[in-house]
Simulated assay, not measured.
Amino acid sequence: MLLALDVGNTNVVFALVEGEAIKARWRIATDPRRTADEYAVWLNQLLQLEGHSRDDIQAVIISTVVPRALHNLEVLAEKYFGVTPLVAGRAPVEWGMALDVDEPQNLGADRAVNAIAAHALHEGDLIIIDFGTATTFDVVDYRGAYKGGIIAPGINLSLDALVSAAAQLPRIAIAAPENKSVIGRNTKDQMTVGIYWGYIAMIEGLAARLKAEIGRPVKVISTGGLAVLFERHTDVFDAIEPDLTIQGLAMMYARAHISS
Rank of each mutant, 00 (worst) to 15 (best):
Glu50Ile: 12
His52Ala: 15
Ile129Pro: 01
Ala77Gln: 06
Ala59Arg: 07
Phe14Ser: 09
Ala115Phe: 02
Asp130Arg: 00
Gly82Ala: 09
Leu206Ala: 05
Pro32Gly: 00
Leu5His: 04
Ala165Lys: 00
Pro170Lys: 07
Ala176Val: 09
Asp243Gly: 14
His233Asn: 12
Val65His: 04
Thr136His: 02
Gly51Met: 12
Pro32Thr: 08
Asp56Met: 06
Tyr80Leu: 04
Ala109Asn: 05
Thr10Arg: 03
Glu213Ile: 00
Val193Trp: 09
Leu2Gln: 12
Val236Arg: 04
Val101Gly: 07
His257Trp: 09
Val83Ala: 03
Ile183Tyr: 10
Ile57His: 08
His122Asn: 07
Asn179Gln: 09
Gly108Tyr: 00
Arg255Phe: 08
Ile200Phe: 01
Gly132Gln: 05
Ala250Pro: 10
Ile172Ala: 06
Gln45Tyr: 09
Val12Asn: 02
Ala109Lys: 02
Ala201Glu: 13
Leu107Val: 07
Val7Ser: 00
Gly8Gln: 05
Leu99Arg: 11
Thr133Ala: 06
Met251Trp: 06
Leu249Asn: 08
Met1Leu: 14
Ala173Val: 06
Met252Val: 15
Pro170Phe: 06
Val41Glu: 08
Lys188Asn: 06
Ala161Glu: 01
Arg33Ile: 08
Ile200Ser: 00
Tyr196Ile: 03
Thr223Glu: 07
Asn72His: 04
Pro153Glu: 03
Glu178Lys: 03
Met202Cys: 05
Ile183Lys: 04
Glu50Asp: 12
Gln247Lys: 15
Lys23Cys: 12
Asp56Gln: 03
Ile129Val: 15
Gln105Asn: 15
Arg143Gly: 04
Arg255Ser: 11
Ile174Asp: 07
Ala112Trp: 13
Arg255Leu: 07
Thr84Ala: 12
Thr136Lys: 00
Ser181Gly: 09
Pro92His: 09
Glu231Val: 15
Ala134Cys: 15
Trp42Cys: 09
Glu231Ala: 14
Leu76Gln: 01
Arg68Leu: 11
Arg216Ala: 14
Leu43Arg: 05
Ala117Pro: 02
Leu229Asp: 03
Ala165Ser: 00
Glu103Ile: 14
Thr192Arg: 12
Gly184Phe: 01
Ala69Lys: 05
Ala227Asn: 00
Ile61Val: 15
Arg143Met: 11
Gly148Asp: 10
Thr245Phe: 10
Met191Tyr: 01
Pro85Met: 08
Ile150Val: 15
Arg209Ile: 06
Arg232Lys: 15
Glu50Trp: 14
Ala4Pro: 02
Glu74Asn: 12
Arg27Ala: 04
Asp56Ala: 10
Ser164Cys: 08
Gly224Asn: 08
Asp110Gln: 10
Val93Glu: 13
Ser53Phe: 05
Ala36Thr: 05
Gln48Thr: 10
Ala120Asp: 08
Ala134Gln: 07
His257Ile: 01
Leu121Gln: 08
Val101Met: 05
Arg143Asp: 12
Ile214Val: 09
Leu169Asp: 01
Leu86Val: 12
Leu46His: 13
Ala109Thr: 13
Asn11Phe: 03
Ser158Gln: 13
Ile151Met: 02
Gly248Ser: 07
Lys23Thr: 13
His119Asn: 01
Leu121Glu: 07
Val60Tyr: 04
Asn72Ala: 03
Arg216His: 15
Ile200Asp: 01
Lys79Asp: 11
Phe237Ala: 00
Phe81Ile: 05
Glu20Ser: 14
Arg90Lys: 15
Ala24Ser: 08
Asp37Gly: 10
Leu99Cys: 14
Glu50Val: 13
Val139Asn: 05
Ala91Tyr: 15
Asp189Arg: 11
Asp110Thr: 10
